[in-house]
Design a protein around this nucleic acid. Sequence first.
DNA 1: CGTATCATTGAGCTTAGTCAAAAAGTGTGG
DNA 2: CCACACTTTTTGACTAAGCTCAATGATACG
Lengths: 232, 232
Amino acid sequence: MRCYHGQTIYDEGTPVEYWHRVVSGTARRFVVRPDGRRQIIDLLLAGDVFGFGARGSHSFTAEAIRDGTVVARYPRSRLESVARSDTRVAQEVLEMALGETGRLQDLILILGRTTAQEKVGAFLLHLAERLAGHPADRVILPISRYDIADYLALSVETVSRALTSLKRNRIITFTGTRQVAILDRGAIETSNPLGQVGDRPRAERERMSASDARMFDSADFGPSRATGVGGR
Amino acid sequence: MRCYHGQTIYDEGTPVEYWHRVVSGTARRFVVRPDGRRQIIDLLLAGDVFGFGARGSHSFTAEAIRDGTVVARYPRSRLESVARSDTRVAQEVLEMALGETGRLQDLILILGRTTAQEKVGAFLLHLAERLAGHPADRVILPISRYDIADYLALSVETVSRALTSLKRNRIITFTGTRQVAILDRGAIETSNPLGQVGDRPRAERERMSASDARMFDSADFGPSRATGVGGR
DNA sequence: CGTATCATTGAGCTTAGTCAAAAAGTGTGG
DNA sequence: CCACACTTTTTGACTAAGCTCAATGATACG
């Protein structure tokens, strides 16, 4: 199945009939909220398998991003009957599902970052690694700033400004609007809103102390004494 | 395995030896960033299966939240050998993996919301549904405001303010600090930073136009003409 | 009844969103 | 080959929302 830019692969709400794999090109899974905002929840690159989340109907719409994107479809019923008889196939099916899980976890980690610069920086590292198959310091962005914005839950302007800022701070460079070179990987990975590193402000100081204290306190008592709603 | 508040179920970086299921109680999977900030990427309630993401070693730490949380462990090797011979088990294993995927997708949708009030509101609906097994209007929060904050990537203060604000707007009520009643479900689901609804500002007006135009333009030409890096 | 933790509220500051417009690519047809 | 139309990207000014720091209640536990 060869797709053009923006072509729908499957629609939200339609029954799950196939499993899909991106052979080449780029695609996205997304929802459009009632307020018209689009949220991309999964960015699909060559080799990625997708579209088996819900057993009933699709929770998201899938679209090709780049012209010429090729997507392979496997009939669900056939794949599952084969999996029933061949456990190696069943194993592979599971592996593919885990691949999707991994992508979603990565996105959650990126979305959890505080500043736009961190999000965009983490996204670049993530994308570079996925495209190259290993950590790399050059990326050719297969998607527009708009797509990045909808993927990171930021506005386009903020994405653009974050990129400019990263460039000004010599953390990345551009060899073209969509060609990025990562200069200072460490600055992205350990980046901290206030620039300082290694202070361990909150989790250790305030929150972990609770768990730690309790762990040491009650370790000898074994499995606790009370459960009442509200934890401790 | 009966756990106390804050007890580690498995540690980040350790090999994956078991699959886990929450029998009763509540648990969390999280990472602690270099800056000390904790990010919860998965909230685990009774019945949830977890801990099979990476095949090598765990990417996250798992901890019990409430005293008396009971977690069952299934040796990975045994489960997999059984799955190899029994395809029904293999099928179930896949179902469980899909359950995790669903939770992650839900979180991404929540994190993608713009305002704190929307995030917290969506979280309440999500939690109510998971706890009751169906959409419900009463929730007893099994976790603290701190946990909510780390789950939604907000500060505790903002979570607290969002709850107060939802209460002031008669969208929720409290019958206790951790007991919430949802009064106006619609106000949460369609909530919009500016209060207006149904305008479809951006995706339709600016972005979709691109895809739509191209779809109509090139639909008859079939699989496109150019692919060059950078798409359109 | 102290002593933690958990929860709420206030003041000031930083950051991202919004609105608006200009600049830089990209492809098309004359 | 160049001018035009369109999209993508960047930048500016202003506004609004969340984070930080700080302090004050509320609640559970020993």
